[in-house]
């Protein structure tokens, strides 16, 4: 793995690193639009059903949601620190530990999210399966919960990919695989931060709407 020659289409390792970095950013721009489709649906139906959305939003578990947000923000900080250790050619074990912490916090997030899903099901909040709500607000609320499950579900899928990626990199970093080829860590980091970024917007839209009244 400690191979210091660029792939054949590149003139230098610098160019190769640059290209990988650029590729991930273009991919993330694409991902932004992917989540953007869901946000557009949310925008439109929130315009139509402000009361239903507000009422439904208060049924989500704000405590667990807030804890989860903090967990994800912390994981991003660990990831950022891991990337910086790697960039400074620090110890591979330090990078490995930081990445392991990142992945474990990601797992914790998924655990909390799963608990929430169970609770939602128990509260009859799953559209198409078991949904009960005040009839006057039912339509907006049902659309809200549909989007809630799709948005958090797709976010969870992305996070799972991130956990597998970062977990694998943690092991490889611990074994010293990135000693002189560090860009994969930074690129995995970009993806992880993006998944965090999505959640930063999902949190107020799904958990905080309608809390004041």
């Amino acid at each position: 793995m400690a191979d210091a020659r660029p792939a054949e289409q590149f003139a230098s390792l610098d160019q190769q690193r640059d290209v990988a970095h650029a590729g991930m950013w273009v991919f993330l721009a694409s991902e932004t639009l992917f989540f953007g489709g869901l946000l557009a649906a949310y925008t439109v139906y929130r315009i139509w059903y402000p009361e239903g959305f507000a009422a439904a939003s208060t049924k989500t578990d704000v405590v667990l949601g807030t804890i989860n947000t903090a967990v994800l923000l912390t994981s991003s900080a660990l990831m950022g620190a891991g990337v910086r250790v790697a960039e400074a050619r620090g110890s591979g074990r330090a990078v490995g530990l930081l990445l392991l912490g990142t992945a474990l916090l990601g797992l914790a997030f998924l655990g909390v999210k799963g608990t929430e899903y169970v609770k939602d099901a128990h509260d009859h909040l799953v559209p198409g399966y078991d949904f009960e709500f005040d009839e006057r607000l039912r339509r907006g609320a049902e659309l809200f919960f549909l989007l809630y499950f799709i948005m958090t579900g797709i976010h969870a899928v992305h996070l799972t990919v991130g956990i597998l990626l970062v977990g694998a990199f943690a092991v490889r970093a611990w074994r010293g695989a990135f000693a002189d080829r560090l860009e994969p860590v930074a690129i995995a980091g970009l993806y992880w931060h993006f998944v965090d970024l999505v959640w930063v917007f999902l949190y107020p839209l799904l958990y905080l709407n309608g809390r004041a009244g």
Binding site: A29, S30, E31, L33, F34, G36, G37, L38, A41, I150
Partner: peptide, 14 residues
């Protein structure tokens, strides 16, 4: 291709 196609993807997922 990069910025339009993902929106089609999510539309079809919905």
């Amino acid at each position: 291709l990069v910025l339009g196609t993902p929106v089609l993807t999510i539309a079809l997922v919905l």
